[in-house]
């Protein structure tokens, strides 16, 4: 008899945040800015990229600073092998001193032969125990990256992973329902106002809520306005 139930929206929102599903459009912006910052921070790099992967290793969004990065990445996911996939799967940083002599990903190494790529460094993006994807930088000369640059890249990963997982969450909620967020905020405000009345000696939470309703009716204000006043400490109720 009515439109989509708000409760269903709430469950969907919570479900998506818990599962860290990706909403592609908005995450891509953040990922691109991140990639640009990484390229500037790590000397010798000709390009940087960020890939977010789902639990099966499928790429869900990506950001890259240069076409050469996009192409090298595309080949990794097409061939299902390469340093970033290994970093993601092993949850460890991967250093490739020279693509030309490295034997770990033979198909990928020969596929990128024509590209100006010799050194690669990739670090996993970890949220808790879960690898969200990988950061990577490429250089056109061998032996550019070492343990020191790996530590530097890793310094980006923790805040980046947290940022990206939060962006996913908030964007998802915004897409599902702005009204629901307002409702949750409002409900929280009412609860805080009830808490203030309880601290002043209103017997139970239900009695506190009844008291707020009486105040709203007496003052001819909305319940939210009454709660806002109370929480802001401007209530002139003289108790």
């Amino acid at each position: 008899m009515n439109r989509k139930a708000p409760l269903d929206e709430l469950s969907a929102a919570v479900g998506r945040i818990m599962g860290l599903l990706l909403t592609e459009e908005k995450v891509n912006d953040a990922v691109l800015h991140l990639a640009q910052g990484i390229r500037q921070a790590i000397p010798g790099s000709i390009g940087a990229g960020v890939s977010l992967l789902d639990v099966r290793g499928n790429r869900t969004s990506t950001g890259f600073t240069d076409e050469v990065v996009a192409e090298a990445d595309r080949l990794q996911y097409e061939l299902r092998q390469g340093p970033c996939l290994t970093a993601w799967a092993s949850e460890m940083s991967i250093i490739v001193p020279d693509v030309a002599t490295d034997r770990r990903w033979p198909e990928w190494s020969s596929a990128v032969w024509g590209l100006p790529i010799r050194s690669v460094l990739s670090a996993p993006l970890m949220v808790g125990q879960h690898a969200l994807g990988a950061l990577k930088v490429y250089a056109d000369a061998p032996n550019i990256y070492d343990d020191g640059t790996a530590r530097l890249l890793e310094q980006f990963t923790a805040p980046a992973a947290i940022l990206l997982s939060h962006i996913q969450g908030t964007e998802t909620v915004k897409q599902i329902s702005g009204g629901l967020q307002a409702a949750l905020y409002s409900r929280d405000l009412v609860n805080r106002a009830c808490g203030i009345l309880l601290a002043r000696g209103s017997g139970t939470a239900e009695q506190a809520l009844s008291e707020l309703m009486t105040m709203a009716r007496t003052q001819q204000k909305s319940l939210i306005d009454v709660c806002t006043d109370l929480v802001a400490g401007t209530a002139a109720d003289g108790r």
């Binding site: 009515n2 139930a5 708000p6 409702a183 409002s186 409900r187 319940l223």
Partner: peptide
């Protein structure tokens, strides 16, 4: 009903 419920939920 959906609109009513959302406002009702909003006010506790």
């Amino acid at each position: 009903t959906g609109e009513l419920w959302l406002r009702y939920f909003s006010i506790g």
